[in-house]
């Protein structure tokens, strides 16, 4: 029963994340800076991290990236997403573990690290360290989108049923 519940909840959250990445492409927001996205799908990552734990978050995030790259992306877009997500998840898990920061702070750090991860991937792919000039812009945009994502997630975390916690992959 519990195993089935895990599979179902993982499938549902991955689907929601996939839909959110699609919905985002429909929102015509132009930040005036090329390459900046809100990253709505990360609402799912942060929410799952808090409700279900880190293993679930890594699992849901990895599945989302693999599926969205297969469906809509290219090999390159997979590299950028995966690198961003790896940095962001690692940072958020560590920062959450300290217990000193709230959802918004953790999510902001996640946003910044996501952009840094993508920058690292871009430097490696293009072999152009000069791209590092984008760091300040990426840090600012990462913070703002991270705060936004964190606010939505903290509302969701408060409102979603606590009973959902029983499917956490972290607890045996």
């Amino acid at each position: 029963m519990r195993k089935t519940a895990k599979i179902v909840y993982t499938a549902i959250t991955v689907s929601v994340a996939l839909i959110l990445s699609y919905v985002e492409t429909l929102i015509p927001i132009n930040f005036g800076i090329p390459g900046i996205k809100i990253g709505l799908a990360n609402v799912v990552t942060v929410t799952v991290l808090y409700l279900f734990g880190k293993k679930s978050a890594v699992c849901v995030c990895a599945l989302r990236i693999i599926l969205s790259s297969l469906l809509f992306g290219t090999m390159l877009s997979f590299i950028y997403s995966a690198s961003g997500a790896a940095f962001s998840l690692l940072g958020m898990i560590l920062l959450k573990k300290t217990g000193k920061f709230g959802t918004v702070g953790v999510s902001a750090a996640g946003g910044i690290l996501h952009n840094m991860g993508q920058l690292v991937a871009a430097v490696l792919v293009t072999q152009t360290p000069k791209i590092a000039y984008y760091i300040p812009v990426l840090v600012i945009s990462g913070t703002l989108t991270g705060v936004f994502i964190g606010m939505i997630s903290s509302l969701l975390i408060q409102r979603l049923p606590k009973s959902a916690k029983f499917i956490s992959l972290d607890k045996k």
């Binding site: 702070g105 600012i140 913070t143």
Partner: peptide
């Protein structure tokens, strides 16, 4: 702490 973290980074 969240606000301090975000403000410092910004």
């Amino acid at each position: 702490r969240d606000i301090i973290l975000i403000a410092c980074v910004l």
